[in-house]
Amino acid sequence: MTNTGMKGARSAAAALAFAAILGLTACGPSTSNFPGQPTGKGGPNNPTGEQQRESIFGEDGLKLFGGGSSGDDQGSGIGVNSFLWRASLDTIAFMPLASADPFGGVIITDWYQDPKTPGERFKVTVYILDRRLRADGVKVAVFRQTRAENGTGEWVDAAVTMATPMQIENAILVRARQLRISTIEATESR
């Protein structure tokens, strides 16, 4: 290699090393101030006494097995009211579960066919809408299908009476109330 070629290779290596050092120093802590960021040493990842660190689990954090007694009807630290959640699972326990999301408050069953009525099947979706035990904290959607009469045996969507989802909602609320009362009685007897 000639003398000029070696100088070119050295300057290319020096430029590459300089770029690497410049890139690594850019990854260091920032002293910039952004709107909503307190001045001084704190930042979103290093909070000061002025600013609390934000969490994806909310102000109280994640509580899986209960927690402090805040005096409300929240139950455990799942995303919805624990009494409504448990009551929903108890009420539709005879149906096979397809999905259950305790943080989003959605329970979806698979199709259930009652042995007494082989020509129809049902599917239920329960939405728990609140962290408090309230009458409007649960919503139920019921889907019904019947066998086609054309002899193909295919399932066809069918209408559901408006009373059916309301009856399931009422059963869930009654069971949630029973669970809450039994929890209160258990804590008072200690």
Rank of each mutant, 00 (worst) to 15 (best):
M95D: 14
L129G: 09
E169W: 12
V80L: 02
G23L: 10
F57C: 13
A176C: 09
I92R: 13
V80Y: 06
K139T: 07
P44Y: 14
F103L: 15
G77P: 11
Q37D: 06
T152Y: 11
G58T: 01
A141Y: 05
A26T: 04
G5C: 06
G68Q: 12
F143L: 12
I168C: 08
S11N: 15
W155E: 06
G79W: 04
A176S: 03
S69E: 05
I168W: 04
L64S: 00
G58C: 01
A9W: 09
S69M: 11
L89E: 02
A13W: 10
P47T: 00
A186S: 05
G42I: 02
S88R: 13
A93M: 13
I184N: 10
L16A: 10
N46A: 13
A87Q: 04
V160T: 00
G28I: 03
G58F: 00
D73T: 05
G61C: 08
S88H: 03
T48P: 01
I128F: 08
V174N: 11
G104A: 07
V80G: 07
R10G: 04
R134Y: 03
A100F: 02
I56T: 04
V126Q: 14
V80T: 04
Q37H: 06
P38Y: 07
K7H: 09
R144L: 03
V138W: 07
S99H: 15
K116T: 01
L129A: 11
